[in-house]
Simulated assay, not measured.
Amino acid sequence: MDITWTSIQKQRLKELNISSTLQEQRFESASERDFAFQDLERQFVTKGRRHLAQFQKFIKRPLLSRLEQQLTEALNLRGFVQVMTPTIIAKGSLAKMSIDDKHPLFSQVFWLDAKRCLRPMLAPNLYTLWKDLLRLWQPPIRLFEIGTCYRKESQGGLHLNEFTMLNITELGLPLNERQQRLEEMAALVMSVAGIDEYQLEVTSSVVYGDTLDVMKGIELGSGAMGPHVLDKKWGITAPWIGIGFGLERLLMVREGAQNVQSMGRSLSYLDGVRLNI
């Protein structure tokens, strides 16, 4: 007889970040399965408790916080300036990104009132900064932001309603250097995150059209370049590149986690460890 985990057991294994290979085990009897489940749960509960003890005594900062610092230091060393912009943005800013009530992303936005929302992306604020900084600084203007974004994403192991984005931008570079710079920025982030053997794939975005996506089983980042049709609404004419990454997904892939929730802001997990252990 081919016996699999019960639905409750599967959920518990996923919560404990037990590998997909172990989650796909088959058994000859229910008793064999239940014994294996008890043994696995005991092992990973012990492992989780041990990690939390180390976290309290020595680590003291969550994975997400540590990755943010590592990325900030690496980008600063390469001449990029960090900015911090508001999480509440105007409806008009989204409209400039072509996100109106007919756009697929519109229904995923958390609206505060008729004119304001929680930002679903970092790009509108970075466009605004570009326009002013072009008057004040000589190009190329290299900016990045690490900040929380909000979307009514479909629930599952790959999506969060509240997630952390890194956007890296460079404005005013030569046209013939844009592709190379996108690939360099992708390589930098993946190196800092500790992820190798990734792929770059050209695909299509509902906002930017053609994009260069960073893949390792799942999409980890997405890059675009301009001049772009959106630029005129912001008064931007110079060539640019921009690439964004979801930090929780980077951590999920690096740590071999089974759900992105364990890597994000949470009351159920701490440093990737489920707290009901």
Rank of each mutant, 00 (worst) to 15 (best):
F35C: 05
A36K: 04
A36D: 06
A36P: 01
L40M: 09
L40S: 05
F44R: 00
K47Y: 10
G48T: 03
R49M: 11
K57H: 11
K57Q: 14
F58P: 01
R61S: 12
P62K: 06
L63I: 05
S65V: 10
Q69G: 04
Q69E: 15
E73R: 09
A74K: 05
N76C: 07
N76H: 15
N76I: 13
Q82V: 05
L94G: 00
A95V: 08
M97R: 05
K102A: 12
K102L: 08
Q108M: 08
W111V: 05
D113Y: 12
D113V: 04
D113K: 07
A114E: 11
K115M: 09
R116L: 05
R116C: 01
R116W: 13
C117A: 15
C117H: 05
L118F: 15
L122C: 02
N125W: 01
L129R: 05
W130M: 00
K131V: 07
D132H: 15
W137Q: 10
Q138D: 12
E145M: 02
R151S: 06
S154R: 09
Q155N: 05
Q155L: 09
Q155C: 04
Q155G: 02
H159K: 03
H159M: 06
N161D: 13
F163R: 03
T164Y: 02
L175E: 14
L175M: 11
